Amino acid sequence: MRAIAAIPVAAVALSLALVGCGGAAPEQTTVGQPSAGAVPPGGGLTVAEAIATSAEPPLAVTGWVVGTDGKARLCSTYDAAADEPCGAPSLALRGDVTAKSGEKVTVFGAVEGEAFAVSSTVQG
């Protein structure tokens, strides 16, 4: 006669439960939507979107730097051959902008009236 080991039902249930638990459930994601705070591919908001948004700073805004020093602007478009190379809408840039005039950048900071207060700049 064979002996059959008696295993309590609670132990079997616990074993099955542990086998079925492969860890935490995978996070649900929305395809095509950047996570909060992420800069979407190709840059951030346009200058027009930055002016119109009610989102809390810091904002990532992509545009063209036109001008230098205290007279630099973040422009929607740039046309070096035009009398006025800065396309509207635009914002005066305040803060440390390391880009040269005519370069496309993404700046991080806040819209303050007719200006953009820059906290950092990404070129390219």
Score class of each variant (00 low, 15 high):
residue 34 P to Q: 14
residue 65 V to Q: 07
residue 68 T to F: 00
residue 58 P to L: 01
residue 29 T to V: 05
residue 43 G to H: 02
residue 57 P to A: 15
residue 48 A to I: 03
residue 101 S to T: 13
residue 102 G to Q: 11
residue 66 V to L: 05
residue 42 G to N: 00
residue 78 Y to M: 07
residue 88 A to N: 12
residue 66 V to R: 02
residue 59 L to G: 01
residue 96 D to V: 14
residue 35 S to N: 14
residue 54 S to T: 15
residue 51 I to S: 07
residue 76 S to M: 07
residue 81 A to Q: 09
residue 90 S to K: 01
residue 106 T to C: 10
residue 51 I to A: 03
residue 44 G to T: 04
residue 40 P to Q: 15
residue 98 T to V: 14
residue 27 E to C: 02
residue 60 A to C: 11
residue 68 T to L: 08
residue 42 G to M: 13
residue 59 L to C: 13
residue 70 G to M: 09
residue 79 D to T: 08
residue 83 D to W: 07
residue 84 E to Y: 12
residue 26 P to Y: 10
residue 71 K to I: 06
residue 41 P to W: 13
residue 49 E to G: 09
residue 103 E to M: 14
residue 53 T to H: 04
residue 67 G to R: 15
residue 76 S to T: 14
residue 74 L to F: 03
residue 75 C to D: 00
residue 60 A to I: 02
residue 37 G to W: 03
residue 67 G to C: 07
residue 80 A to V: 09
residue 29 T to M: 05
residue 31 V to L: 10
residue 104 K to H: 04
residue 36 A to L: 09
residue 29 T to F: 11
residue 69 D to E: 12
residue 42 G to V: 10
residue 87 G to E: 00
residue 83 D to G: 12
residue 49 E to L: 05
residue 59 L to M: 09
residue 61 V to Y: 02
residue 92 A to W: 04
residue 85 P to M: 03
residue 47 V to M: 08
residue 83 D to M: 10
residue 26 P to F: 01
residue 53 T to G: 12
residue 51 I to R: 14
residue 53 T to P: 14
residue 57 P to M: 05
residue 57 P to W: 02
residue 104 K to M: 14
residue 41 P to M: 08
residue 88 A to M: 07
residue 39 V to A: 03
residue 85 P to I: 06
residue 64 W to G: 01
residue 43 G to Y: 00
residue 50 A to P: 08
residue 47 V to N: 05
residue 106 T to K: 11
residue 42 G to K: 13
residue 64 W to D: 02
residue 64 W to V: 11
residue 44 G to Q: 06
residue 44 G to W: 00
residue 66 V to E: 03
residue 82 A to G: 04
residue 79 D to E: 05
residue 49 E to S: 15
residue 54 S to Y: 06
residue 41 P to Q: 08
residue 107 V to E: 04
residue 88 A to T: 08
residue 98 T to S: 04
residue 87 G to A: 01
residue 48 A to N: 08
residue 82 A to H: 11
residue 34 P to S: 14
residue 87 G to R: 12
residue 60 A to Q: 14
residue 80 A to K: 10
residue 95 G to V: 12
residue 103 E to L: 05
residue 51 I to L: 15
residue 100 K to Q: 06
residue 38 A to W: 01
residue 47 V to T: 10
residue 50 A to I: 12
residue 45 L to N: 08
residue 96 D to G: 06
residue 41 P to K: 08
residue 31 V to Q: 12
residue 100 K to C: 00
residue 61 V to D: 09
residue 41 P to G: 15
residue 104 K to F: 04
residue 45 L to W: 15
residue 28 Q to P: 11
residue 52 A to T: 05
residue 103 E to I: 09
residue 70 G to T: 11
residue 40 P to L: 02
residue 34 P to A: 13
residue 100 K to T: 00
residue 32 G to P: 12
residue 45 L to D: 10
residue 86 C to F: 06
residue 29 T to E: 03
residue 43 G to M: 04
residue 99 A to D: 07
residue 77 T to S: 14
residue 59 L to Y: 07
residue 37 G to H: 09
residue 47 V to D: 00
residue 52 A to I: 11
residue 64 W to K: 04
residue 29 T to R: 07
residue 32 G to E: 13
residue 54 S to E: 09
residue 106 T to M: 00
residue 102 G to F: 05
residue 51 I to M: 14
